[in-house]
Write a protein that binds this DNA or RNA. Structure first.
Length: 264
DNA sequence: AAGAATGTTATGTA
DNA sequence: CTACATAACATTCT
């Protein structure tokens, strides 16, 4: 879920006590994390997230960049004597917990300059405090690209993934294939606002629930899987019952309700 | 047990 | 320069 997923993870790791406790980073197999062993014995001092990128900072100034990509996942186990299964790219241990990372797109030690370069090519991240959405608006105003495509372009807006693009467009009643430059200022503003709220809700609840709980008459935590999205991976629209249109946009599955998101 | 899935990047084409 | 297609890479689940 980067998208939320990456961000949730960082938030959750912090709650799990991986910040500020003694950590050991084991030497992983594979082509990832060159020289991670030098982190042995150092304390993790901060976990930061920008868009779908995670940055783990250690006390000696080492900077670990993690991107989960499509398959990357942290798996948590109780205790520190955990059998290593599969290709573990990174293992973090706190006194009572082991956190294994598998399948990330990136897991590498970088320097601050590299992080700057990386962040420089990302658009505004709706989750950052004091973020200025203007670069996203400016891009949208001049682009002929479909808004559904633009939302996945991390250089336009950072952090939105396939679930949130479908759900945010649904909530705003915008058809995904509409050229972004044809959207009104009001629509752009509403879209940004919707995304901010959705991402925040994701971080708060630790899962992606884009449906207003009032709409299904059940608290957020008790919503069934099929009720957590309006159109994403659904056959019918949660709101109006119309058949959801499943298409491909930017090489990803796109879901939209033809009735709630009319193309004008 | 093939295929799909909350992703990115590099490369080629027009 | 923009847009779009394709392939490559990673893992887990059905």
């Amino acid at each position: 879920m980067p998208e939320g997923h990456t961000i949730h993870r960082a938030a959750r790791d912090q709650r799990r006590g991986f910040v500020g406790v003694p950590l050991r980073v084991s030497s992983p197999q594979g082509r990832f994390v060159d020289g991670a062993a030098i982190l042995n014995g150092q304390r993790l001092t901060a976990i930061g997230a920008y868009g779908k990128h995670l940055f783990y900072e250690w006390e000696q100034g080492e900077l670990l960049h993690v991107h989960l990509g499509l398959f990357g996942k942290f798996r948590e186990s109780v205790g520190t004597d955990v059998e290593a299964r599969g290709a573990i790219r990174l293992r973090l241990t706190s006194p009572d917990t082991t956190l294994d990372l598998r399948g990330p797109t990136a897991c590498e030690l970088i320097d601050p300059a590299a992080r700057e370069r990386l962040m420089a090519r990302l658009g505004p991240d709706p989750l950052q405090t004091d973020v200025d959405p203007e670069p996203f608006f400016a891009r949208a105003r001049r682009s002929r690209v479909a808004i559904g495509t633009l939302l996945l372009d991390q250089s336009a807006i950072a952090g939105v993934g396939n679930v949130f693009r479908a759900e945010a467009l649904f909530v705003c009643g915008i058809a995904p294939e509409v050229e972004s430059r044809t959207l009104s200022e009001v629509q752009l503003t509403e879209l940004w606002k919707t995304i901010v709220e959705m991402l925040r809700a994701g971080v708060r609840s630790g899962r992606i629930v884009t449906v207003d709980p009032a709409e299904v008459g059940r608290p957020r935590s008790k919503m069934r899987r099929s009720e957590r999205t309006y159109v994403y991976r659904r056959a019918t629209c949660l709101r109006c019952g119309a058949g959801v249109a499943k298409t491909e946009l930017a090489a990803r599955n796109m879901f939209a309700c033809p009735s709630c998101q009319p193309r004008l």
